[in-house]
Amino acid sequence: MTGASSRGPAAARAIVAGDRRVLARTITAVENGDPSADRILRALYPQSGRAVVVGITGPLGVGKSSLVNALVGLLRSRGESVGVIGVDPSSPFTGGSVLGDRIRLERRADDTGVFFRSMASRGAAGGVAAATREVARLMDSAGFDVVLVETVGSGQVDVAIRDIASTSIVVVVPHLGDEVQTLKAGLFEIADIFCVNKTDLPGADLAEKDLAELVTLGERSDGWAPPVVGTSTIEPTRGIRELWDDVLAHEQFLDTSGERARGERRRLSAEIVGIARDRIGQELTRRLERDPSLRRLLDEVVAHRIDPRAAAERLVRGGRRSR
């Protein structure tokens, strides 16, 4: 998107007016860290904060994409517009990726009330890409009522969705493990809603029971008790309406309890620090590579004469010898 910087406000207006092509190109610029996106993001920020942003996470193969498709169907039948982000992993070896979340999407090709974007994780840990939050915010600014973010098939510590979504659904299937698995730290801690998918399979009732029990073992600090809902995306689908009712109940809880404002502050504080950390990191990397005295410092560390902590101290002090 070369030349977009001069068109920042115009591009922002086009996105708000519903120009999907400009939205698509701006998402690309954001993903690529193209500085031309900065002005567009800046111009759009005041328009954001209206959409319900819901995270759908859970291990690979539990049916996240199919659930997203079912939720899109339900929301469209209620006249709500939906932006979807499907994140899949990038290869740590080649950087390549196969993005297959779109494959489950069924919708009319002329339905402008749905916008689906696939994203590769591009080396980010945690289950989403570095740019996912800003892309969700773009969709929010573009006027979508709901933004669904489907994470990479997650592992036990992939909890980054919590920094993007106001409601996180953790999806599991029967026979993922015994009840002690549900007690472990990480993924299961971030669930605002537990979804046991594939209830057409045997063992679903046991999985639902284990999760319902987990919820009773202790109280969450915010006072929300995550509901457990069973779903099946095979026609006739089951539990999709109930799943969305639970999302709305949690969103209402966020408003009435004051947790939304607290969560927003926490998320935005982390975002500001994260962006600042990235920029400072890039600057320090640049200095270490270009400043001759700092390059000598690196030589000293390589030769085991100065330890990395002392060198880092000198680096952040701009190369001056500390004390």
């Binding site: 080649t94 990726s97 297959g100 779109r102 002329d110």
Partner: peptide
């Protein structure tokens, strides 16, 4: 799709039976 992935590309795999639209 796999060969292009291995060549470092991001491949959006849209799957079977797609209409031109």
């Amino acid at each position: 799709a796999r060969a292009l992935r291995d060549a470092g590309m991001e491949v959006i795999y849209a799957g079977l039976r797609q209409t031109p639209e």
